[in-house]
Design a protein around this nucleic acid. Sequence first.
DNA 1: CGTCACGTTGAACGCGCTCAACTAACGTGG
DNA 2: CCACGTTAGTTGAGCGCGTTCAACGTGACG
Lengths: 296, 296
Amino acid sequence: MPDVARYPSATAHRSAFAGLPVHALSSEPPLPLPRSRAEAVRPVILLSRADAAERMEHAGGTSSARNAAPQIGCERCSSRDLCMPPSLRDTQPAGLVGVFGNSRKVERGEAIYRAGDGFENLYVLRAGSSKTIALHRDGREQITGFQISGEFIGMEGLTTGVHTLDAIALEDSVVCAIPFRALESMSYTDRDLQRHMNWLMSREIVRESAHLMLMGSMNAEERVAAFLLNLSQRYRERGYSATEFQLRMTRDEIGCYLGLKLETVSRMLTRLQKRGLIQISGKKARIVDLDNLERV
Amino acid sequence: MPDVARYPSATAHRSAFAGLPVHALSSEPPLPLPRSRAEAVRPVILLSRADAAERMEHAGGTSSARNAAPQIGCERCSSRDLCMPPSLRDTQPAGLVGVFGNSRKVERGEAIYRAGDGFENLYVLRAGSSKTIALHRDGREQITGFQISGEFIGMEGLTTGVHTLDAIALEDSVVCAIPFRALESMSYTDRDLQRHMNWLMSREIVRESAHLMLMGSMNAEERVAAFLLNLSQRYRERGYSATEFQLRMTRDEIGCYLGLKLETVSRMLTRLQKRGLIQISGKKARIVDLDNLERV
DNA sequence: CGTCACGTTGAACGCGCTCAACTAACGTGG
DNA sequence: CCACGTTAGTTGAGCGCGTTCAACGTGACG
């Protein structure tokens, strides 16, 4: 198995949304190039704090200062492996000043960015979770994705220079804003970074393809099962339990994501439970029989 | 006619390259090549021919040599504006040897690449059209996109290093294979090219988001209307008629793309026709009332 | 406690699917 | 040349999955 820890989601949807390449597992992640960037000065902007601070649940309440991000250095960030290319992972973030490390707090329901906002930043979810929504002119909404910590959003803005989606926090979260122009400039001198960006965007394309497959040819039960498996996989990749997790989104949001109505989602969840494949109680989900859940 | 004379001037106004060693990335030095017309050897660079040759319909029949691509130089390629970043558009293709310009003929039904193939090239459709298919393990297919001339495919392969889709020609077509590693190398010295690549990938993400919206929240009639409008738009962008065009795909393929059954597609087409919005006769489509077609 | 958003469950409806019959276009071989 | 098979497309009839509408349950929070 290739070094999954480095490019964790290479295998991302293989079980859940499997039209996609199981054999692809054997593929090599982009090769790290020799590191040209010497470790230089100590970090300037970044304060060190315990990672535990990132694990804030929305119980946490509002901090005294709005948008006062709990500044944790990239070097201690749990999202590091997901966010940065290998070449930068062992580096002190000296070269990253003004690029990486600008974290910000967003409360539940608050927008990370909105459709129409100028495309200035990419965002990495450091802690928490979010959804991205496409809004049709007639008011219909389509959730195009859910993100959990370590995942990127905002790349759709590049095409037009304006974001085309709303990105909304599902719970109190911390996002790291990465100024795109700076990132771009940096990538001119760092090939690994450039590759990493290409890789991230390509992964996004693959994800959406998998989701299209789901929307185009799966029935309600399969969709819900695939959804749970997808979440499970992603939680596992990030070191959380793959079999027990909180659904941070409502049934309505799940439905909006899967192309179903909330009642249908609810029914399918109870059906899967009756079959002994999962256990559901409100937002608490537990996968009981993963193998059979994968068999739809 | 490998136009060697082109070389000197080529290097002369490579505005974007700004003194950078473009040829370093190409295995081919910018040396004059033997002026041989022999077809035996695959032309490395580009022959000039009329664009008309690209407009081959599948009536055209098979040429004497399989895969003998009608080599047309990038400088005369009608896809140029869509394929290349602005910096390269006015340039003679000297620096592009081994990167751009490797066109190849594919017959109707033939694969441009297949899921499982190593990710080595991106492809630009120079002429013709294609579809990309995701194959589920249980055999279900999902068409994730249709491409017409000037459009890119293959970027989904970057994530895993292996293509995850099949790309199949819908008619006899010409594709230009662009070795990704070479393109990547080239982009290290050409910021415009890098931007262009990012832009193309981002556009792909936006496209898929739009398609997700369609799949998630539109009814059959709306989907078919949106599909026609989308084609219309893309044809217009490429200088073809926006109101009259051939559907190069079958009803079944349209259905597979839209998440509908072929009978439903057929019914919706006739319904739209009865309403006076379009005219359909087999594969020939004409948009009569574009405004009302847009209003679903 | 009451409020409100979220979730579950039931019953009936309707859109798109399934199955089937038929037509049209096309190419192939006798 | 027609006979024929093949593939693509259209149209109808009935069915079933997921929706719609409605009622009720539940949990978080002031």
